[in-house]
Simulated assay, not measured.
Amino acid sequence: MEKLVYALWAPEGESRADFGVRLVAQLPAALKAAGARGIRLNVRDAAVDAAAGLVQHWQAPQQDAVAQFWLPSANAHFRGPVDALFTDLGGRFAAWLVAESTILPNRDHPPRRGERTWGWSQASFLSFRPDLPWDEAVAHWHGHHTKVAIETQRNFEYVQNIVVRALTPDAPDYDAFVEECFPAGAMTDPHVFFDAVGDEAKFAANLGRMMESCTAFLDMGRIDIIPTSQFDFACLG
């Protein structure tokens, strides 16, 4: 099995909110019928409007939703029925083959079929610094930054996906896709986000460690970070 990540844009004339509702209602069953498994959708809806201040831009327009799932093969010949589904949605899409590493599984607030997962999900499309060799960037990410992200944040799910290759010709040149889930309060309160409620010294230390680690391996001008509502359909098979 291979994991695929699709970035999705709403068709012209359809609002982001309406697009998200349509995705959640129609896409999981259609993807399953096309052979996908472990299906998860991340949509930018009203539930995450409060996190607008956390958005970071590279692409314009920016992604409206993300679909993650597994297929027996990402080979273009076998992927055809899946790509046809995304074409039929009417908007732009871009896709990547990724290698997943689940750092923190969601044990505290496990998702339920068809329901919005508790809290919210930060979906991050990331690019490594161009002045770093790829293996050095990955070594920092895996060997240093992973520990920092766990120790400085109030994340209850943390999944890293390293990009193996782009699957569509116009896919932005990202190196990784990361999903982290946080309590709702982290959308507006950085002290909640950095696990330092009531402790200014801890907040300053956690924020400083995180920023120092991020800038050590990421190209901060080529990232797209979006707040989303997570809908997990892994129970479909």
Score class of each variant (00 low, 15 high):
E2D: 12
K3W: 02
L4N: 03
V5H: 12
V5K: 06
L8F: 06
W9K: 04
P11I: 01
S15T: 05
R16E: 05
D18N: 12
D18L: 13
F19G: 01
F19S: 04
F19Q: 04
V21P: 01
V24T: 12
K32D: 00
A33G: 07
L41K: 10
N42Q: 13
D45Q: 08
A46M: 14
A46N: 14
V55F: 12
A60T: 10
Q62Y: 08
Q62A: 15
D64V: 08
D64I: 09
V66I: 15
W70C: 10
P72E: 01
S73P: 05
A74P: 12
H77Q: 14
H77V: 14
P81R: 06
T87R: 15
G91C: 10
R92G: 05
A94T: 13
W96M: 11
L97A: 06
V98A: 02
V98Y: 01
A99M: 10
S101D: 13
T102S: 10
T102D: 08
I103Q: 07
N106C: 10
H109P: 00
P111T: 06
P111C: 07
R112F: 05
T117G: 02
W118Q: 09
G119K: 01
S121C: 13
Q122R: 14
Q122M: 13
Q122V: 00
L126Y: 07
S127N: 04
D131S: 14
L132Q: 02
L132C: 04
W134A: 15
D135C: 07
V138S: 02
H140W: 14
W141P: 04
H145E: 08
K147D: 05
T152L: 03
F156W: 11
E157H: 13
E157R: 15
V159E: 11
Q160A: 06
N161A: 06
N161H: 14
V163A: 05
A166P: 09
T168V: 05
T168F: 02
T168H: 03
P169D: 12
D170C: 10
P172H: 08
D173I: 07
F177I: 12
V178H: 15
E179M: 14
E179T: 15
F182C: 09
F182V: 06
A186S: 07
D189M: 08
P190N: 08
G198K: 14
E200F: 13
A201F: 10
A204W: 07
A205T: 08
A205L: 12
A205P: 03
N206G: 01
G208S: 13
G208E: 08
M210V: 13
M210E: 13
M210A: 14
M210L: 15
M211G: 10
A216I: 03
D219K: 00
M220L: 04
G221S: 15
R222M: 06
D224I: 06
P227G: 00
T228I: 04
C235I: 08
C235V: 13
L236Q: 11
L236Y: 05
